[in-house]
Amino acid sequence: MPLNIDWKQILLHIFNFVLLFAILFFLLYNPIKKFMDKRVQYYKDMDEDTKRRSSEADEMKEAYEQKLAQVDEEIAAKRKEAEEQEEKRRAEVEERTAEEVRSILDTARADAEAEKRKIIDSAQTEIVGLVTEACQKAISTNPSDAMDGFLKQANEDKND
């Protein structure tokens, strides 16, 4: 062959290179590449984990904010309810008080009326008694004696 080209030696060179390929691939390239891929996966997992945790934290925050908003609403509703109940209770107390006042006044008015009627009745009875007595006296005694007695009484009052 020209230029000393020898197919046998070419094949031996190819054999040598294939052997070297196998050696370097299995002993160096592949383990290093695997390690590098593992590291990439490690950081990728870490990144995904961080993102997942961040997303969970966001969801949790949102849930808490929703709960807080709900609690605020509940507090407002309870306050409103309490105010309504208080208003109702106050109205009832006022009504009851007014009722009591009215009842006391009625009782007092009735008592006063009864007292008045009793006094009038007693006065009428007394007047009737006095008149009756005066009439009996007038009938039983001499009118001049009565006049004398009256005059005598008048003089005594004058001397005093």
């Binding site: 060179h13 040598n16 370097l24």
Partner: peptide, 21 residues
């Protein structure tokens, strides 16, 4: 087998790289 020295070099290099690897 009579070969060029280059082929011997190739085998020597493969041997050295094998040991290093």
């Amino acid at each position: 087998m009579e070969v060029n020295p280059g082929l011997i070099s190739a085998f020597v290099i493969t041997g050295i790289l094998f040991v290093v690897a």
